[in-house]
Design a protein around this nucleic acid. Structure first.
Lengths: 222, 222, 222, 222
DNA sequence: GATGAATGAGGATTCATTCAT
DNA sequence: AATGAATGAATCCTCATTCAT
């Protein structure tokens, strides 16, 4: 999956020293956290460097620009989610059983990188310019297939064909929103969504949501 | 802090102190659009001034600082939504009929100010520091009441009491997410969510979501 | 002649306050001296600001960028020389009498702004990108006319038609070179070419050069 | 200071200490071209390294600093010209015949390294600090001798003794200026002064200039 | 109320240089 | 001899803010 830093033009060092590789990784970690919290514009290279424990110019030994760093963060962060999605959607459709499993897997992946959804949300809000290239090649076809398969499930009895995409988007928003609103809930309710119990509760909730909205059996009134 | 025009504002120009008020309003409009698109950090006073057709220092004749301008934008934007929410939730609970109506009203309000959800999303993502004071006095009690009332509806048979808040949040995310993802969809699918037809479709979808998730009648298996 | 700062996009202030105008002028003065001495790359905005007695950001209130400042310096500096050239060349040709007069006038103009030739030399050496637009509209036609007229003088008996441009260029180089090499001569011979006597000597020399190379009368051996 | 290869250098690769020397030479070539085009301040070590196809730190294996590299470039470039000058001026004076020959030889040397005059011009314009030591030991005595000899030729009948240096300088400027203005002419007239025909034309022109300004025979009117 | 001018702080980025490998 | 990594200093430029007009 090594498409890392496609835009990191100049410094793209041919042979990575283990030391350098580790530094680059640490930079990515720091940048991921900061971009997720403050967005692109709100994140300073100074903040990244400080977090890594390095001087600002050193960042440029690993990434050609703030923008390239941002792209690399997105790329690295999105890869596993894409993998899960494409893996799970490969063979079958959106029946409640599989959808439930998909939801569970996605939640598991995101639980390990809870900043990721916020990162994507930031990017989405500001236009998704960096998302588009990645998604055009990955998510768009996935979305299309999800749609096709969903059309072939009993769910269509309840949901019209043109509503299926809305349903998929809705799930997307619920899942992403859960992580997005995390820090606020933490402050308001004192409940940290990075807590395992909280995540499990949300996963259960999502499962029930799937079962209610996309039942395997045709609804009773059919 | 000059809380500008707590009512719906845009279509009906409020009492106009001939000139200044109109300028302040135009500044708020410009700032709202820009903050919604780029967030606080990504929005420049120069950009605001340019959009208004005025020089930067003039902004300071109407708002004490960038921060104050931002607060005013949030305040003005949130007021009508809060009004709808508190109005609708006042007497009764979350039965599907009323919930459907609530969803419809909220969609109607947001359809007139589609940047608002993005504004709130930005703020939420970056910590919601500006949101907290407003919400602590408005939304938090609303939320509590919604919860209480929901507990008294048949929905509880399907959803455990601790799931009700998750359900409410889920609806929040679906509604807000619809507007949030607008520009991307516009670019990817060519579908402008500010389009009336698109909004109506989404509203229908939300209605059906409400009916499915919070049926008036106890579910068939009860 | 106010074509000042054609590329100074943003700040181009509509109404110039006398104070601001004076500041802009002082910036131009400082920049002219520095660009002439160190060239574009070798000149720092810090150096300019220091010389003006102002902070760096203030420069941006008057010129949109280092590049725009540079262009404005060139423009302002070149204008009078262009004026002299086009004025003198207007009616007649390159006969020794008029050419001598032209040389004299040019020397007089340059004597008042001895940094100008160095400025132009720097620009020429580094590609003349900033010169081209100015010269395309001014010098190129002048050059053409000079050529045409020269062709009609007795000089052609001595110089073939294709040599006339070389002759013109040679004069250009001798004149410009005199000022260009000034600081070196000052250091080596202790002779300051900004000295009036030195300039007058050079002017006499140029006059004799003109008379020798472009005699009014056909050369004796013809 | 590693004075590299004082002879004509490029066509005949000097004694090659297998690898390093060749790299040093390639660095000098790249640096010469870049310094000539952009001057000292406008040339970055990155640009040099890129042109050589090597990483920046490698440059430091061959030259102690940017400044040392610059000095080496000047030294290597100037040596052959100095050689020609001192050789030609050795025995005799500035009679038109010998002067013509000198001009021809200088043109020949420069034609092989057309960047050299631009290099020197850059250096001259920015103060000539690096030139001074070289010139003090080479050119200054040459100049003095040229002056002495010139004083003993018939030319003095036309040119006063104090004008001889001006004449020499004028030739210097015409010769150097020809190469200096090359890129501009290339762009404006489409005529590449590195073209053999162009150089020959200029040489012919210079010869005629010499004959006109420094005739062997006393001028007809004497 | 509007704005030209000025500026402290800080933004991303480049540069020449060093050093360990 | 070559180079990845690191960095102090400096680059151009932007930002939010102030103030006199």
């Amino acid at each position: 999956m090594s498409l890392a830093s496609a835009s990191a033009a100049r410094p793209a060092p041919p042979r990575r020293t283990p030391k350098g590789e580790r530094t680059a990784e640490r930079i990515l970690d720091a940048a991921e956290a900061l971009f997720a919290e403050h967005g692109y514009a709100g994140t300073t290279l100074r903040a990244v460097a400080d977090r890594v424990g390095v001087r600002i110019p050193s960042l440029y030994n690993h990434f050609a620009s703030k923008d390239a760093l941002y792209a690399a963060v997105l790329e690295r962060g999105l890869a596993p989610v894409i993998a899960v999605l494409s893996d799970t959607l490969e063979p079958e459709g959106l029946g409640s059983r599989d959808s439930g499993e998909l939801v569970e897997r996605v939640m598991a992946v995101l639980a390990e990188r809870p900043e990721l959804p916020r990162l994507v949300q930031h990017e989405t809000l500001t236009g998704g310019q960096h998302l588009t290239p990645m998604l055009r090649s990955w998510v768009t076809p996935l979305f299309a297939r999800a749609h096709d398969l969903a059309m072939a499930t009993p769910a269509t009895r309840r949901w019209g064909p043109e509503q299926i995409p809305l349903l998929v988007l809705a799930f997307y928003h619920v899942v992403v929103g859960f992580f997005t609103i995390a820090p606020l809930l933490h402050e308001w309710v004192g409940e940290d969504p990075r807590d395992e119990a909280v995540i499990e509760r949300q996963t259960r909730f999502l499962r029930q949501l799937v079962e209610t909205l996309l039942p395997d059996e045709p609804p009773a009134d059919a």
